[in-house]
Nucleic acid binder design. Structure first.
Lengths: 208, 208
DNA sequence: CCTACCGATCGGTAGG
DNA sequence: CCTACCGATCGGTAGG
């Protein structure tokens, strides 16, 4: 017999006790937004509580430290980017095509997880949580650099420039999207992904 | 007669009174570095004082607020970038060539005033000083967008992509340099400027 | 017995 | 350039 008392079977889960309130994820979403607006250090739990219309203590009901919020956000971004890169890497294709789809997939992740990725890209390594995130990010960057190197070796990309530098420039352009892109604006995530990829690989200049 | 007491004529300026200590500019340089390392809000005047080996009050001898340090730094970056753009804009040349030299000049300013430009690019608009800097930055961005638009209209750049978007991508790549470039490292500011410009305008891909 | 939350306050530290 | 402080606010926790 169920330990839960009589409930009409199949009924949607109700909120039996307590206030309507927030859950862990909605607290996290607001926290990420505030961290991005004012910076992590400049955002107090009190600010977050005020924004959500609850007390500070209510925040600590959902999450046990401010750093946990940061950690959850950075993991979201890193998990998304890792998956995107891993997916594009394992394709049975030329290095050029794998690089091209990695760029496109990265832009998509960046656009769909924009707040979390924005936070990740602003992390400077203060404290253990940020340092762990930077370490994971470095691993991804190394995979990207290797992919670029393969594309150069294959003869697809110009060989007069250090592959490491090319990689930094390419993903520098990709990452700069967080500074202005707004989902739901004039340009969609799909358009953005294909346009950025084309500008990088098909070029900017009209050739005669 | 000079108010300063007897000093052998032609001697290099000595430090007549007080401790050896720092001057306003050396305080500013350290402040910019710390702001970039930990973030402006996370850096206290106490941190800066400790780093310089003086007390907090000693800082306030050279500058009358933490915001003043921020303001001086942001003006340095904005003055440099404005001058670079203005110089390249007034050349009697095609829009394409003016854009190309603007990109190159921007990279040079970014490399030579790296700490100040880094700080500028991380400003989020908290407080009046940051908002004023963002306003000045927007003016520069508008000049850049106009220049890209002219180059598209002239037929030099691809016309299937919004000039505004092209401008954001181009200067997104340029600005991303602050995330990894270190003066005095393996690559010089000159090399960086020509390589970034070439990657953007000559393309990444080997064409047959 | 649970989820969701409150009013008040802790020991320390911020910019000035 | 220092000692001695201020008003306020920080992240986090108590009992209910």
């Amino acid at each position: 017999m169920s330990p839960v008392a009589a409930e009409p079977n199949g009924a949607p889960p109700r909120r039996p006790r307590g206030r309507p309130g927030h859950d862990r994820d909605s607290v996290l979403r607001r926290a990420i937004d505030l961290f991005n607006q004012r910076g992590y250090d400049a955002t107090s739990i009190g600010d977050l509580a005020q924004d959500l219309g609850v007390t500070k203590s209510a925040i600590y009901h959902h999450v046990d430290s401010k750093e946990t919020l940061l950690s959850l956000a950075l993991d979201e971004a890193l998990d998304g980017l890792s998956a995107a890169v891993a997916g594009a890497l394992e394709a049975d294709d030329s290095a050029y095509e794998r690089l091209r789809s990695t760029v496109e997939a990265s832009v998509r992740i960046l656009a769909t997880h924009l707040p979390a990725v924005t936070l990740l890209l602003r992390v400077r390594g203060n404290g253990p949580v940020e340092q762990a995130a930077l370490a994971r990010r470095r691993l991804i960057d190394e995979q990207l650099a290797t992919l670029v190197k393969d594309a150069v070796a294959e003869g697809s990309l110009r060989s007069d420039t250090d592959p490491e530098l090319i990689s930094r420039l390419v993903f520098g352009m990709v990452n700069s999207l967080v500074d202005w892109f707004h989902p739901g604006g004039a340009i969609s995530a799909d358009e953005l992904a294909t346009t950025v990829t084309s500008v990088l690989f098909d070029g900017l200049v009209v050739r005669r």
